[in-house]
Amino acid sequence: MEYIFRIMRYDPLKDMYPFFQDFIYQTQEKKSVLEALMDIRNEQDCTLSFRYSCREAICGSCAMVINGKFDLACRTELEMFESSLIVIEPLPNLEIQKDLLVDMEPFFEAMSKIEPYIQTEGGLSEEGYRIEEKEMEKIFQYINCIMCGCCYSACPVASRDERYLGPAALAKLYRFVKDPRDKRPFSNWSRVNTEGGVWGCDTIFKCNEVCPKNVRPADGIEALRRKLVVEKVKRIFRFKR
């Protein structure tokens, strides 16, 4: 098979604007987009830059936009495509550092704002916790997140509003709020009761659509919203009594 790879190139230190460059790629074997990119780099242009590591859709390095679709290059097989033209762009709404490599700092920065670590009460017990599987199952959906950044990059709100924490961070917060071991006070997690937090979400569900691991971050955002409202009502009620 012969493919045309139309790859966005950009070196901010040299180029005025990003541009597309075409590479002709031939292969007899079944290859993923990532394998093809590595071949192109090795055989045609060693300056082509992109991230990769595990090649099994678990490390979150190789998120990019492939023929208009957000996905991991490693799990996208060439034979899935009907046309032989394959257009590859870096994740949008994040600064390009070089070619397909973007600055993930805003994504991790937003993540760190929700205090993404367990906040337990008391020290280490010698026997461990007792938690029923069904309690754990409530958070399993969210711990599948591999922090690839697809949802953040695709989110229309994150792209126009710097304050917005984005889907992955909010879903991560929900993961902790739901964890029976986590005892963070309401005053802590209710900080997302803002436009930069859960109310920023436009409920367009782009995040659910693009997530390669089926995390459905918007489920977490919606659940946080409900929980906030319930907690507030509880508080008002308690106050009146």
Partner: peptide, 21 residues
């Protein structure tokens, strides 16, 4: 080491009774 990991937040699978599977 395992109980420490659990205490730091690792979501281990569980057995009935709530212990680590």
């Amino acid at each position: 080491a395992i109980y420490e990991l659990e205490h730091l937040g690792v979501p281990f699978s569980r057995f009935p009774g709530g212990v680590i599977a």
